[in-house]
Amino acid sequence: MRTFRILFFKELKSYFLTPFGWLIMAFAAMMQGLSLSTTLKEYSESAMSENLVFATFQSPIFWFYFLFLFPVLTMRLFSEENRSGTLEGLLTAPVKIWQVVLSKYFAAYLTFILLWIPALIHFRLFAMLNDIPPPFNNGELYGALTIVILMGSLFTAMGCLASCMTSSQIIAGIVCVGILFVHFLLGLIPYFFGDQIAAAPLFHFISSQEHLRSFSRGLFDTRPFVYYLTASGFFIFLTYHLLDYRRWKP
């Protein structure tokens, strides 16, 4: 556990003791602000039937920046160690492979979670600075943040796997975007082909768009919890074995 803690803080430092983490934070804050302000503009122009949180997280800009956070956060994790050779020094110290994988995963994941502080502040401020009752309630706000953080656990694990596959950060980033995009499109299949196809319930089950819609209306559903947590466990498991691969490859 002590080894895990040392590795974890080392990774966390590489995000926040360099400009890197702060740049992503600034980017995320800017995009969150942009989607909130464009949504507010729509509110001022026409009557809206949905709550503000829902409309903000449904704005077209959301998926665009959301899916790009993960490659940026994770592409460096393993590929850089691979390229520079520091993996050799790391794995010949008395550390276990799961400690390496989990420390990197959780450092990236915690950084991702911290990226949502600006969004939380935006909505809190909106409620504080207006004398009108805010057009959303706490269930909707925390529901949206919960599902975003839940989706993050899986997408970060996908990014870790992509980073472990190659020694080039760029390729790791592209592979990560690819995996995320395929996952995103799978969730859209029911829209294109309708609910008549036999696999439609499966696609509904993994559809991040639908999860986001229901949670940002304040509907907590336990199925996405099961899905995202088991799937991230699976991707971490794959990452572990990919890193261990050199130990058993022919």
């Binding site: 360099t18 050779g85 520091t86 010949t92 008395p94 276990k96």
Partner: peptide, 20 residues
């Protein structure tokens, strides 16, 4: 392997280090 690694100090070829 872990016991072995506790006993050795290893300097790999080309000395990879965390440069930042």
């Amino acid at each position: 392997s872990l016991d072995v690694r506790r006993h050795i100090g290893y300097m790999p070829e080309n000395v990879p280090l965390y440069t930042d």
